[in-house]
C-alpha cells in the first residue's frame, strides 16, 4: 500500500493521474480503516458450534455467537477485514467481518471443510475436505470450488508456500504429505511420513517443512527441495508414556528460531530450538492441546485445549501460563486480530 502512494505522487499530475490519485487515496483510507486491529481473539468450538470472542488485553470473554455446524479451521482474509470459518457438518465456509463478528457471506457446497490456507494473493482458499479424500481450491471472488485434487483419506493440514506455487496437504489416514502444484492443481509428489500427519509449519527460508505425526508422537522434518524426510523430533514430557504424546498444531516464530508444538493428549506445549531440533521446555496447559496461535508481537502464545473446554495463554518471555479461559465445547482453532 505504501509503495503505491509514493509511485502515484511521483507521476505527472495529469487529469487522469489526479483522478487515479484520488481513487487510490480513497481505497487506501478505507483499506486503512478496515485493517485497524480490534485486539479480539476468536476461538472456534467444534462441538458447541460457536465462536467465543475474547479481549486479548483483559482475557475476558466478551461474548460468543453461534456458527454453522462443527466450525474448525479459521483464517483471515488477505487484508484481515474478514475471516473464514470452515463448518464441516454444514459443508460450507462462513465469512465474518473481523471488527464486528457479523456474518457477511457463506460459500456453500464445500464438502466437509476442515482446515485451509490462503494463497498469497488472497484470492484462493486451499481447503482440506475431510470426508472426500480431496483438497479443493475455492475461488474467493466467485465463491466457487474451481478445482479438486484427489489425495489420501482424511486430509487435514494445509500450507501454501510464500510464492503461492506449491500447497502441502496432509492425509491423516494414508500417512502422507501431498505436494500440489497450485497452477495445475496436480499432485507433484506424495511423501510418506510417520503415522497420522496433521499440521504443518514452514521454516522461514522454506527449506524445511515440519509436519506433526500424531500417532507416531514426533514431528517429521522434510527437505522441501528433495521432498525427503531429513530428521524428526521426539517429544516426551515427564510422567507421560510415548503413546500418550500426540502432537498436532505447530508454529515457527518469525525469526525462525523457535517452534511451538501442541502435544495433544500429553497436555503440554513443547518449545523447540529449531536449529538444534531439540525440545528446550515443556509447558503444562489444559487437556488435549491442539490449536496454537501467536500474538503479532509473539509475546503471547494461545493454546486451544479441546478436552477441558478452555484456552491457555502463555507468556513467551518466561514460558509460563498466565491464565486459562473457559470457552465453548471442544475448542479447535484460534485467530488473533492484533496486527
Amino acid at each position: 500500500m505504501k509503495k503505491t502512494s509514493i509511485r502515484f505522487a511521483q507521476m505527472a499530475m495529469s487529469p487522469a493521474n489526479v483522478t487515479a490519485l484520488f481513487f487510490s487515496l480513497l481505497i487506501l483510507t478505507t483499506a486503512a480503516v478496515a485493517t485497524a486491529s480490534t485486539g479480539l481473539v476468536y476461538v472456534s468450538n467444534e462441538k458447541s458450534s460457536e465462536i467465543t470472542v475474547i479481549d486479548s488485553k483483559t482475557y475476558k470473554v466478551l461474548r460468543s455467537f453461534d456458527t454453522c455446524r462443527r466450525p474448525r479451521g479459521m483464517h483471515f482474509s488477505l487484508d484481515r477485514s474478514q475471516f473464514y470459518v470452515g463448518c464441516a457438518d454444514d459443508s460450507q465456509i462462513a465469512i465474518y467481518a473481523t471488527a464486528t463478528g457479523e456474518l457477511v457471506d457463506r460459500i456453500l457446497n464445500v464438502e466437509e471443510p476442515e482446515t485451509f490456507d490462503l494463497s498469497p494473493d488472497g484470492k484462493t482458499l486451499y481447503v482440506s475436505n475431510e470426508e472426500d479424500a480431496i483438497a479443493s481450491f475455492v475461488d474467493l471472488e466467485t465463491r466457487k470450488v474451481i478445482n479438486e485434487v484427489e489425495i489420501g483419506e482424511e486430509p487435514e493440514g494445509v500450507m501454501v508456500t510464500k510464492d503461492g506455487s506449491v500447497v502441502y496437504v496432509a492425509s491423516e489416514a494414508n500417512n502422507m504429505v501431498h505436494v500440489i502444484n497450485t497452477a495445475t492443481a496436480e499432485v507433484i509428489t506424495d511423501i510418506l511420513v510417520d503415522v497420522r500427519p496433521r499440521r504443518f509449519a514452514l521454516s522461514v527460508d522454506e527449506k524445511e517443512l515440519w509436519v506433526s505425526a500424531e500417532l507416531a508422537g514426533v514431528v517429521d522434518i522434510i527437505d522441501t527441495a528433495t521432498n525427503k524426510i531429513i530428521g524428526d523430533i521426539f517429544f516426551l514430557p515427564t510422567g507421560f508414556r510415548k503413546e500418550q504424546v500426540t502432537p498436532v498444531d505447530l508454529l515457527i516464530t518469525k525469526d525462525g528460531k523457535t517452534a511451538y508444538v501442541a502435544l495433544g493428549r500429553a497436555n503440554h506445549v513443547a518449545v523447540v530450538d529449531v536449529a538444534r531440533r531439540k525440545v528446550t521446555k515443556y509447558i503444562l496447559v489444559g487437556k488435549r492441546a491442539w490449536g496454537l496461535a501467536l500474538s503479532a508481537d509473539e509475546k503471547l502464545l494461545w493454546v486451544a485445549n479441546g478436552l477441558s473446554d478452555d484456552v491457555s495463554v502463555i507468556n513467551t518471555a518466561d514460558m509460563q501460563v498466565i491464565t486459562s479461559i473457559s470457552v465453548g465445547k471442544v475448542p479447535y482453532g484460534i485467530l488473533i486480530d492484533d496486527q
Binding site: 484427489e150 489425495i151 489420501g152 500417512n175 502422507m176
Partner: peptide, 10 residues
C-alpha cells in the same frame, strides 16, 4: 479402497 493413494506413492 482407502489404500489406493498409498499404493500410488509406493
Amino acid at each position: 479402497r482407502g489404500s489406493r493413494i498409498i499404493g500410488r506413492a509406493l
